[in-house]
Amino acid sequence: MTGWLRAHARALGAALGRIFRHPAASLLEAIVLGMALALPLGLYVAIDGVHAFASRHASAPELSVYLALGADQRAIDAVRARLEGLDGVDRVDFISRQDAAKALRKSAGLAEALDALPDNPLPDAFAIHGGGWGASRLERLRSEIALWPQVALVQVDAGWARTLEAAAKLGRAVAALLGVMFGLAALAIVFNTVRLQLLDRRDEIELSRLIGATPGFICRPFVYLGALQGLLGGAVALLLVLAASAWLNAALVDFSIAYGAHLSFRAVPWGVAGAILAGAGLLGATAARLAAGRQLWA
């Protein structure tokens, strides 16, 4: 066990030594790797922000049912009963015309305009929360309810949020695909870097083989070098995404507020950051192992 640990410590020391002996080249490699990894990671962060925004709004009522202005309590009760009897309805909230007017006064600053009117122009309404209806089902429901007596208007509320959420889902898939593509690019970068290191060290490798080094002994420092390069690249990618999202966040918040929404980039969660670093390290180690194996077989 001690010998095994010693061999790994020696290999890690050799890999660190190579990085510190060539700091400029190592930094450049880390930046190239970091940029390759930052692109899918940045896209992931952007889409995560959109997804969070869409999720917040997707939980809003799916349908709003506005009653005719003269609807009495019997009509209200009848509509409520029919709405509650619909398949897939989770909750039906009644919003009286008085409550609606109060809310409008508070939220939109329309108090003066409302006061100027002779009567409350708002109807009684129902907010219907459903269990994940699709767009076509929502449309069918809207048409069906619109035909009920005392129903003036039916509006699909959360449709846009659902669409945005679906787009975010698609965006995530695209980010994953880009992640694979840029991951392969990162693999190629590390593979080539290690291949050059192997060529640079071919005399040492040849000598080591002649005097009894195992393939593991020869490959190990290069695998550690690849893993360290991957880790550094992952760290650079995280820093780039962090810096870019901090830089863009203020502008994005201002922009979204102008449209009555609050959209912002969220910080990369610790778990994701850890996974990025571990993944990048593993990617680097794999590329290095492939390069070293190829060299040894050659």
Partner: peptide, 28 residues
């Protein structure tokens, strides 16, 4: 093995050259 062309590693010290077989053998 003693090679005709020595096969020395010129980017390492004399000590490190001699120590290589011991590193391979895993000595402390």
């Amino acid at each position: 093995l003693v090679f005709q062309d020595h096969k020395l590693l010129f980017d390492r010290s004399v000590f490190d050259n001699v120590a290589l077989p011991l590193a391979i053998a895993g000595l402390g």
